[in-house]
Amino acid sequence: MVIDVHNLNFSFGSGSLTQPVLKGIDLAIRKGEIVLMTGPSGSGKTTLLTIIGGLRQASNGSVVILGEQLVNSNEQTKVKIRRQTGYIFQQHNLLKSLTALQNVCMTLELQRDLTESERQYRAQQILAAVGLEDRMHYFPEALSGGQRQRVSIARALAGRPKIILADEPTASLDRQSGHDAVEILKQLAKELNTTILLVTHDYRILDIADRVVELEDGLVKAVEHQE
């Protein structure tokens, strides 16, 4: 198992203001699986995603990612997990002062054993794979929403992460570019045998999933298997 969550509880606030968000989540995802997570707002999808990605500290239950226990972990462990995880955000979250190519390179600069030319080469390859070979030196503000999200996908995949975490990646895109973006994501993830956990409200993209998990009120409500 790449992601193994067991009896995870999480609440915001403290004392009488405690607001439980996750109430005993169990979720296991195999290597190479593409899992979509849906559910109404406030069901705790995003919170679960940030805990799995090592961005939020949980103190109850068990969250084992790539063999590392994240519950009550230290900063080093979390940073280690973050480096093996690619993130795709709802807003593209590209660095606005960097070109598409430089943005993708930011992922690769975390890998110190690569030379500058290797980084450039790999970033160009992955940008070409998302169909942006002629937009490499554009700044984000000169790109369309769909193009930005594809740069964001390239950035997440460039480091060849073992896990991709995505939070509503198609929310700000129109139907066609949204579908194109997740198609590219799926195709590249399958090539690299990357595990994907994708939170979405967008039922148009459910067809890319191997499995759909539905969250409601901090609990896994149903697991549907796609055939």
Partner: peptide, 11 residues
Amino acid sequence: FEFATLKAMGY
């Protein structure tokens, strides 16, 4: 927000 993004990436 860019710094937070980079932190999420493992910086």
